[in-house]
């Protein structure tokens, strides 16, 4: 048995007794980023496939959520910075090795793009809407004429954004729980699922709801498959990853993770959606809300638990 203690005394804020430098704004941002990525992915996908008429919520109405989610997410990112008024330094360089650097640039591109996208549908949402200025009216016409082009840019950026929310964490070799390449795809699928759940919640169109119920069940299945593989990877890994997995397999995150995320946030909504497809009357808000809360809980738990995993002491 080894006993290791710091005898010179060390009680540095947010470092001791274990790392806790990222607080609630970071998982909240990861959730909002994933949600926006999901919504924008489906909006651009069905625009490219020419389904604007059949799927109005996915293409038009849900996309109004995305710019607000992104702006709120960016605000959360900003308030978590400790040297805030130097944030512009992010935009004086592009460092390809740093996920946070290219993530910042992707956000700088996709946030205005999501605003432009929604703005193009504003006069359809509010028939009495008037842009007043001629230049804005011409810009609206340009947007409406170039939706396919915008959709191609947005689908690419939304996939990068969705993956980035996971890669941001997986790039840290020092935190064994995060250091797995599976985290990028897992966060992307989870983000797409929260996006699909939002569309499902907002949609009043029977055929659209059926389609997104099916999509969501598929995404949840992939997510569960990834989660099983995540733990299989840990259990076949080095000691530090075995210790990371132990936090979820008997440790302090066992109940929050398997109860809140897997059971309440994935399995139960998938079951409710399956029953809905079988003809049961289930309010769309219920599975959607469970998926959104599960997605948020997943990110909070992954960030909190990951910061507790380490190599030393």
């Amino acid at each position: 048995m080894n006993e290791e203690i710091i005898i010179s005394g060390r009680d540095i804020p947010h470092i001791d007794p274990h790392l806790n430098i990222w607080h609630w704004p970071i998982p909240s941002y990861l959730f909002l980023g994933g949600l926006a990525a999901g919504i924008l992915f489906f909006a651009s996908l069905y625009t490219i496939l020419g389904k604007e008429k059949e799927l109005p919520t996915a293409v038009k109405w849900a996309s109004f959520v995305a710019p607000f989610a992104l702006m709120l997410g960016l605000f959360f990112l900003f308030i978590d910075l400790k040297h805030q008024w130097y944030f512009w330094r992010l935009y004086l360089t592009l460092r390809i090795e740093s996920p946070m650097s290219w993530g910042a640039w992707v956000l700088l591109a996709i946030t205005p793009l999501s605003m432009i996208w929604a703005a193009g549908y504003l006069s359809e949402l509010i028939p009495s809407w008037d842009w007043k200025l001629g230049i804005l009216k011409r810009f609206e016409q340009w947007i409406q004429g170039h939706r396919k082009l915008l959709a191609w840019a947005m689908i690419l950026l939304s996939v990068i954004l969705g993956i980035y929310t996971g890669i941001l964490l997986s790039a840290f070799n020092a935190r064994p729980l995060w250091n797995t390449a599976l985290l990028g795809p897992l966060f992307l699928v989870s983000g797409l699922s929260t996006g699909a759940a939002t569309i499902l919640w907002m949609s009043r169109n029977e055929a659209e709801r059926k389609l997104f119920t099916r999509i969501d069940i598929l995404l949840i299945s992939i997510e569960l498959f990834f989660i099983v593989h995540l733990f299989m990877g840990f259990l076949a890994g080095p000691a530090v990853q075995l210790e990371s997995a132990a936090l979820f397999l008997g440790g302090e995150f066992t109940l929050p993770f398997w109860g809140l995320v897997v059971l309440m946030g994935l399995a139960l909504p998938a079951l409710l959606e399956l029953l809905e497809l079988k003809g049961w009357k289930i309010p769309a808000a219920l599975p959607a809300m469970l998926i959104l809360l599960g997605g948020l809980a997943f990110r909070i738990i992954m960030v909190e638990a990951g910061e507790m995993t380490r190599y030393l002491y």
Binding site: I12, P13, H14, I15, L19, I21, W22, D80, L81, K82, H83, Q84, Y86, F87, R89, L90, S98, M100, A171, F172, N173, A174, R175, E307, R310, Y311, L312
Partner: peptide, 20 residues
């Protein structure tokens, strides 16, 4: 003067040698 205090480097250090 270039640091934004994002905490990425603190997360990345296996020795917890950095602090804010």
């Amino acid at each position: 003067s270039k640091c934004i205090g994002c905490g990425a480097c603190i997360e990345s250090c296996p020795y917890d040698a950095r602090f804010s």
